[in-house]
Amino acid sequence: MSASLWGRFTTRATTGLRPSASRFPDLSTPVEARPEARPRMFSATGIAGLALLSFLAALAVLGPILVPWTAADRDFEAFLQPPSANHPFGTTASGGDLLVLTLLGLRKSLLIGFVVAVAATTVAALVGAFAGYFLGWVDRTLMWVTDLLLVLPAFLVVAVVSSGHDDWIALVVLLTAFMWMVTAKAVRGVTIVMRDREYVKAARFMGVPSHRIVLRHVVPNLASLLVADATVNVSAAILAETSLSYFGFGVAPPDVSLGSLIADGAPTALYAPWTFWWAAGLLIALIVAVNLVGDDLRDRFDPALRACA
């Protein structure tokens, strides 16, 4: 059964670690005590991450509109110039304005990151929940496909296929196709535990059809895991896109992403640091922001899942 290949690893990583019983069964929560109010949504670091993320998102959406230059403009009086009043981020070797390029790159990276994360997490939730709930041949089939995609080197396949397409939508589809598997394994593991939960059994014994149990009882109760995982996938998608674009397999001109900017800037980074550092810095800030939010959600919703960050 191929399901045991990564299933073993991921369930161990996600659910198997934490001893099930709480430490002090006697003094934690008496059964009849008033249930506690819901915990606060975000910690201080989570709020910081959210603020930074909102700021970067606003910058990405509004910035390119406010900057007087466009991506296609070339300033023939300023080749590879350091930051100035005219070009606050400096210019590229061909006279492009780095400010507008960086902001557009940020926009594309953010867009790709979020779309891929949402799509991949959706696929993961459905595949994992159906495999884990139905088990049997459904599980074996779905997990075999999952294993197959896991053993395929994602970078290579995405690079091969996307080298034939210059469309960034194609890139999103490809990245999605290779990002859902680990989450799906985790979802499957949790679902297997969950299908023995009494509220799922109760629904089954009530005569609720299986697919409706999955969609109504299983998936909604995975929401916390999924939201946390989606944020992690945002940064994973952005990083993957960066690597691909760095080698020219990702976003193709005239589109720019932070990855393609870093690739363009790296050779000149030593003597023209502005070609490299703006894009690299913004990328790091973006990942930090996403990770801060993701970590916070993860800790809040599902402490048992911290392990697979």
């Binding site: 940064s235 990083l239 960066t242 690597s243 760095y246 990855g259 870093i262 690739a263 790296a266 980074a269 030593l270 490299f276 690299a280 990328l283 790091i284 800030a285 990942i287 930090v288 990770n291 801060l292």
Partner: peptide, 21 residues
């Protein structure tokens, strides 16, 4: 750790090269 996790490999590699030079 948090900062390291946010640095893409391409950036880290290039930063290390710049540092080494």
């Amino acid at each position: 750790v948090f900062l390291l996790l946010a640095v893409p490999a391409v950036v880290l590699a290039n930063v290390l090269i710049i540092g080494a030079i």
